[in-house]
Design a binder for these strands. Structure first.
Length: 263
DNA sequence: TAGGGATGGGTAA
DNA sequence: TACCCCTCCCTAA
């Protein structure tokens, strides 16, 4: 489930769980065992998200290091009771005073030095969930490329955090043809698109699922399961009832309505 | 019960 | 662009 809203939510929840606590860190699966030994017993300082990346900072480590996690497609966090036995494929278990958290199947779980962290963060684009995000940088990037909008929206070095569902839904909501060269998008449409990225990702954080049909949070919340999306994985367009088309852009299947998204 | 796709992305070519 | 990794979950048989 991991688009940016999921990662943001994990960071928030993990801060509630562990911030300021001394934690036990282990790697039942073994692939993070050496790193876990270094972290075990340290104080959990903060979890931060940026795009689809998650970072854990600790106090008083022998060497300054940050844990970098990327869930990829299969990665998952599960809250567990302290007394529970982790399943053998758990890459990292972290235990605080009251509860445990298990991470399984991440694409990335590593200890980074600060120079490497900075280098990585420089590659992550503006995150709509970050209050400091600068849409001017996104606008500038769009303005200088002919790459199609369907490609650019998934480019994590331009916007950090949008995944395949939000891509399809945002293009549909703003009636943007997936193949429209980014630099042909006018400023008013871009502003509306960015504002909606912020609004819908924020809603995703609160609702813990992606819902795009509705204006207010309450309208979005009221959508039943299976009713929350406009176009992603649908057979027919909810607006004009025509057959939904698919194409592959940025290596992933994009769903779109050729009639409603004509320009 | 086996197989394949998936809300991802790095790397090699 | 193709391939690979990681795990879960749904579908088809």
């Amino acid at each position: 489930m991991p688009e940016g809203h999921t990662i943001f939510r994990h960071a928030r929840d993990q801060n509630d769980l562990f911030r300021g606590e001394r934690v036990r860190v282990s790697s039942p699966q073994g692939r993070f065992a050496k790193e876990a030994t270094l972290l075990d017993g340290a104080t959990f300082r903060v979890a931060e998200s940026r795009g689809k990346h998650l970072f854990w900072r600790f106090s008083k480590l022998p060497k300054p290091r940050v844990v970098h996690i990327h869930l990829g497609l299969a990665g998952r966090f599960r809250r567990k009771a302290l007394s529970s036995k982790p399943s053998p494929n758990v890459r990292v278990r972290i235990e605080g005073e009251d509860s445990a958290l298990d991470l399984s199947g991440p694409a990335i779980c590593e200890l980074l030095t600060y120079p490497k962290l900075r280098k990585l963060q420089a590659r992550i684009g503006e995150d709509p969930l970050d209050p400091e995000a600068d849409p001017e940088r996104v606008w500038a990037a769009l303005s200088r490329t002919r790459r199609p909008m369907g490609t650019v929206l998934l480019d994590q070095s331009v916007i950090g955090g949008l995944g395949n569902i939000y891509r399809a839904e945002l293009l549909f909501l703003h009636r943007i043809a997936p193949t429209l060269p980014a630099r042909e998008l006018d400023r008013a449409r871009f502003d509306a698109l960015w504002a909606d990225s912020v609004r819908l990702l924020e809603a995703g954080v609160e609702l813990e699922r992606i819902v795009t049909r509705g204006q207010t949070l309450e309208q979005l919340r009221a959508r039943k399961r299976g009713e929350g999306l406009w176009i992603y994985k649908r057979a027919r367009c909810r607006r004009c009832k025509r057959k939904v088309e698919t194409c592959t852009l940025a290596g992933r299947t994009l769903y779109y309505c050729p009639k409603c998204q004509a320009s």
